[in-house]
Measured scan of single mutants.
Amino acid sequence: MSGNGNAAATAEENSPKMRVIRVGTRKSQLARIQTDSVVATLKASYPGLQFEIIAMSTTGDKILDTALSKIGEKSLFTKELEHALEKNEVDLVVHSLKDLPTVLPPGFTIGAICKRENPHDAVVFHPKFVGKTLETLPEKSVVGTSSLRRAAQLQRKFPHLEFRSIRGNLNTRLRKLDEQQEFSAIILATAGLQRMGWHNRVGQILHPEECMYAVGQGALGVEVRAKDQDILDLVGVLHDPETLLRCIAERAFLRHLEGGCSVPVAVHTAMKDGQLYLTGGVWSLDGSDSIQETMQATIHVPAQHEDGPEDDPQLVGITARNIPRGPQLAAQNLGISLANLLLSKGAKNILDVARQLNDAH
């Protein structure tokens, strides 16, 4: 009898209710805020589980004197976190989706994509230029951005401005803007500013005609071990179906173009009346040469937790077992079709030249 009692006690200790789920994140304040929001949602869904947040620095956090596009290494903000995932030191990792490459290392998958916040870019102005827009900034004003995508589009749109690289986390960039006289304004992701509670610093939100956004911008991705079915089931509740389908289309477009950090590629997606609209573009580094096109596809946005595919093969690095396969494939095909259209119009040449120029500098 006593033996059975011990077995029952052991089973209770090993039951999922007692389990601590370890969540990996970057150390920056924004990353911690984003991770806290994901953990809060998981806690609400699984009140019996405990969650421990483990923060670590990544290569991208450490190399702050070089433009991201020049470092010449993929997975700048993800490699150390993936290493911890691989060694079973954490069970899942919360990322900004735009930091996750469209091809993940073997053994990993994006197990959830959370509801997207505003994906557009924002302009934050130096205190002396508050009330201005990019259009009304004085001639030769210097605007800071760490992104080739932003610089290429904005140089084309605002030729009277000069664009220079600015690195560091959000706090560091804002301090550089406010305390030094080098920059009249800087460009940042609206979602990051909003998550930090800095709505009052948003001086201008850039519309798609001015600057399309990065693939996955404004959404959070939760990376897990691809074979860890328990954790895949656990994080599945975080999937937002519309965000998922938009981001599958965007990531398929980028992957098929073979774009990345070192080339200016941008997108804009919208879901309306059962249609998914995808606009994508590529630019030369100075913005003088560009190709942009829009395509659409009829896609039914499923309700969360309709029964999805059981075999769960990944699409552009994403596993969404609780979302039907048909809409996911339709979104992926839309991204591939748009990429093929741009490639047929000469996108590869623009991107190759951009890559060579970026590598040469």
Results as ranks from 00 to 15, higher is better:
L341G: 08
A303T: 12
Q304P: 06
Q314N: 14
A360W: 01
V130Q: 11
A330L: 15
V202F: 01
K27F: 12
I110N: 04
P264E: 05
M295S: 04
K79H: 12
S262G: 15
V224L: 15
V215D: 01
A347W: 01
P309I: 06
H268F: 13
G317Y: 07
L148P: 15
S290V: 08
H256K: 06
V93H: 13
V38S: 06
V94P: 05
I33W: 12
C247L: 05
I248V: 07
N171I: 11
G259W: 01
G317R: 03
K79S: 14
I205T: 11
L30P: 01
E80S: 09
P159I: 08
H239M: 05
I336S: 15
S288W: 14
E80C: 11
A31P: 01
L104R: 07
G203E: 05
R173W: 01
L148T: 07
R325F: 14
I113K: 01
E80P: 08
L338F: 01
T279R: 06
L174I: 12
Q292D: 10
A152G: 09
A320G: 14
S284N: 10
A112H: 01
V235F: 01
L234M: 07
G168I: 01
D286A: 05
G203L: 01
H256E: 15
R201C: 07
D91K: 12
K70S: 07
Q332F: 05
Q292T: 10
F108A: 01
E135C: 09
V202E: 10
D311V: 11
N333I: 15
L76T: 10
H120F: 15
E89G: 08
I63D: 01
K157E: 06
H305F: 01
A297F: 01
L341W: 08
A189G: 09
T243Q: 15
R195P: 04
F183S: 10
K348E: 13
K27D: 14
S262R: 15
P309S: 10
L154P: 01
D352F: 14
D121H: 03
L81F: 12
K27T: 09
V224E: 05
L343V: 15
L206I: 03
L285Q: 07
T35N: 04
T102L: 06
R325D: 12
P47K: 15
P47S: 11
I205C: 13
L174P: 01
T294H: 15
A270D: 12
A151I: 05
V94H: 06
A151T: 08
F51N: 05
T133G: 06
D286T: 08
L174F: 14
D99L: 01
G287W: 01
Q217A: 06
L92T: 08
R167V: 08
L254W: 15
E179S: 11
T136N: 12
E135R: 13
H268E: 15
I350T: 01
L343W: 15
P313T: 07
A252L: 03
T298G: 03
A320T: 12
